[in-house]
Design a protein around this nucleic acid. Structure first.
Length: 588
RNA sequence: GGGGCUGUAGCUCAGCUUGGUUAGAGUGCCGCACUGUCACUGCGGAGGUCGCGGGUUCGAGCCCCGUCAGCCCCGCCA
């Protein structure tokens, strides 16, 4: 299959099976070891390495000469015979190490300048600075680690296509040049040449299109969709990213979750991990109460407890006063946490403060009873009521629920990285359900959609939509894995009247609604089936399954945190004439 | 928009604490030697805008201010 006019095999594919065969290979010079009379070359391609052995006993003089002059990363074509290595390979895990190629012909077809960053790295040698890796992306992409990541990415993509196709989903493409319809994030805009002062927007997601496909009767849609959001970046966020986007008609939340679970199961299986179904479901309120987060890492217990009922009269005044003001005392008991150093505990306290807590109350249970700063703060009555056993560590926070949740979530996340903290499992999926429909904007105090404005309200809460929008739940669900949000979805609004009401709750005038979302409302009025869907953050999934720590390691040509492409040099200024054609003027 | 870390040879880093002769190491590169290496080995050599700009000082890689770039986090973002 991999044979071409130039080669019979890939370098990394040679094994005992080919011993004695005459082969032709093409690849990159990974490393060269020149012993004077003998030259060994590790030749690399996407399948791996094979050792070339150049020896006057079988290599003609010109071959010896050329082999001795080979620079790193040069592309060569080689002819030779596959032979077992004289000595048992030291690295038996690399099958190609069992054999080598006795070179009879060697031709340089792609001379290479000395690489600016090394492709062949020594053991434990640090990676070059990320800036250089991005600038010299071609060289970085040659590294076996990134080759493996990109190959995994391909396999996951194909697997997703396969399983969704088996589930009768149709892959349908939607426009990249779309209408600016803000869903929360800033749009990337594209000026129109034919229509002065008008703009396309790149899609933040194919949300409205996929809903209209449901209205159009396509019943089950999916797309490996590129999405664009002009927001500030993070290690796990890029300005353009890929979603496995899907939508289905006549479905309940369970139906959608069922499909998503099947997709995730197959993707994890492709990466060699067996996943149990169904995933546990956890209410949004419950998740915040027990874990302080709507994306809890359920590989760990470490549940948050409400300690308020245990507070006695001997608690410190700042605790009793906060209690009187309506705050709660919440905490985590870490079994075995008594062994943490003071430095580790101080580190946790710093995180709690950073998250807005006044401080972290802590106490550990030694042989003689509870000790530590928390004995005074929480009061010994509380600690007696709490009980516990020797070696326990109590970490607690007083404050509003919002503060204690985010502080304890930060503490809990840090705890999971400390040595000796017990893990219940390696792979913990869950669904977070019953999200609120609206959030209150911190600045304006106005209602904003918790997700996007097309999410259907929970039927049980529909009657409160006007009276008390804040208490309305949504038919929205998130898939969470090991503390990472993999994606989210919902049942959509199909009643145009309800959709109008949501828009107007968001402060849109009738005219705004018409202008911005008229085509959606017309669609919904044309006979809309009940429908819902989901979008999985594909890059993040690849990152997690590849064991990478950055999205940039699973994207061939990523952007920096300032949204620059260092390799090709985007964005870039354009010729004023080109701007004029677009009816634009660049102001300094 | 805010905070933090980093920037010295092609690459990875030391030097900065406490300003002072000619800025070092490993690796890569170049040359020589070497017939079973696999991070080959040995010997020799070249290689520096200490990110950039300004300031303090007799003197700045080192101190101060600004700026640029990369990374991480908060805000933002599904």
């Amino acid at each position: 299959m991999s044979a071409t006019a130039y080669r019979t095999h890939r370098c990394g594919a040679l094994s005992r099976a080919e011993v004695g065969r005459q082969v032709r290979l093409g690849g990159w010079v990974h490393r060269r070891r020149d012993l004077g009379g003998l030259v060994f070359v590790d030749l690399r391609d996407r399948d791996g390495l094979v050792q070339l052995s150049c020896n006057p006993a079988w290599s003609p003089a010109p071959v010896m000469e050329r082999a001795a002059a080979l620079g790193a990363e040069t592309v060569v074509l080689v002819t030779g015979t596959v032979q077992l290595r004289p000595e048992p390979a030291r690295d038996a895990d690399l099958t190609s190490r069992e054999v080598e190629v006795h070179v009879t012909g060697l031709e340089v077809v792609g001379p290479a300048q000395t690489p600016a960053i090394p492709v062949a790295r020594k053991e434990k040698e640090e990676l070059p600075a990320e800036e250089l890796r991005l600038r010299h992306r071609v060289l970085d992409l040659r590294r076996p680690e990134l080759q493996a990541n990109m190959q995994l990415r391909h396999r996951l993509l194909q697997r997703a296509r396969q399983v969704l196709t088996e589930l009768e989903f149709l892959e349908i493409e939607t426009p990249i040049l779309t209408k600016p319809t803000p869903e929360g994030a800033r749009d990337y805009l594209v000026p129109s040449r034919l229509h002065p002062q008008e703009f396309y927007a790149l899609p933040q997601s194919p949300q409205i299109y996929k809903q209209l496909l449901m209205v159009a009767g396509y019943d089950r849609y999916f797309q490996i969709a590129r999405c664009f959001r002009d927001e500030d970046l993070r290690a796990d966020r890029q300005p353009e990213f890929t979603q496995i986007d899907l939508e289905a008609s006549f479905v309940s939340p369970d139906d959608v979750q069922n499909v998503v679970e099947q997709v995730l199961l197959e993707l994890w299986q492709e990466a060699g991990v067996q996943v149990d179904r169904p995933f546990p479901r956890l209410g949004y309120r419950e998740a915040l109460e027990q874990y302080g987060s709507d994306k809890p890492d359920l590989r760990f217990g470490l549940e948050i407890r409400d300690l308020s009922p245990l507070v006695g009269h001997d608690a410190a005044s700042f605790v009793t006063e906060a209690r009187a003001a309506g705050s709660r005392l919440r905490g985590i008991v870490v079994s075995g946490g008594g062994a943490f150093s003071r430095k580790e505990i101080d580190g946790l306290a710093a995180l709690a403060k950073e998250a807005g807590a006044g401080g972290l109350i802590w106490a550990r249970r030694a042989a003689g009873g509870w000790e530590g700063q928390g004995v005074k703060a929480a009061g010994s009555t509380l600690l007696e009521r709490l009980g516990g056993s020797e070696g326990d560590l109590l970490l607690a926070v007083v404050g509003t629920d919002a503060v204690s949740s985010s502080a304890l979530h930060a503490v809990r996340t840090a705890l999971t990285r400390l040595p000796g903290v017990k893990r219940l499992t390696d792979h913990a999926f869950c669904w977070i359900v019953d999200f609120p429909l609206f959030e209150t904007d911190a600045d304006s105090g106005e209602h904003v959609p918790a997700h996007h404005p097309f999410t259907a309200p929970h039927p049980a809460d529909l009657s409160q939509l006007k009276l008390d929008p804040g208490s309305c739940r949504a038919l929205h669900y998130d898939a969470v894995y090991n503390g990472n949000e993999l994606g989210s979805g919902s049942i959509r609004i199909t009643d145009p009247a309800v959709q109008r009401e949501i828009f107007s709750l968001l402060g849109l005038s009738e005219e705004d609604i018409r202008r911005r979302f008229g085509f959606l409302l017309d669609g919904l009025g044309a006979g809309a089936p009940p429908h819902g869907g989901f979008a999985l953050g594909f890059d993040r999934i690849v990152m997690l399954l590849a064991g990478a720590t950055s999205l940039r390691d699973v994207i061939a040509f990523p952007k920096t945190t300032a949204a620059r492409a260092l390799f090709e040099g985007a964005p870039a200024p354009v010729d004023p004439a080109d701007l004029r054609a677009l009816h634009l003027e660049a102001k300094p």
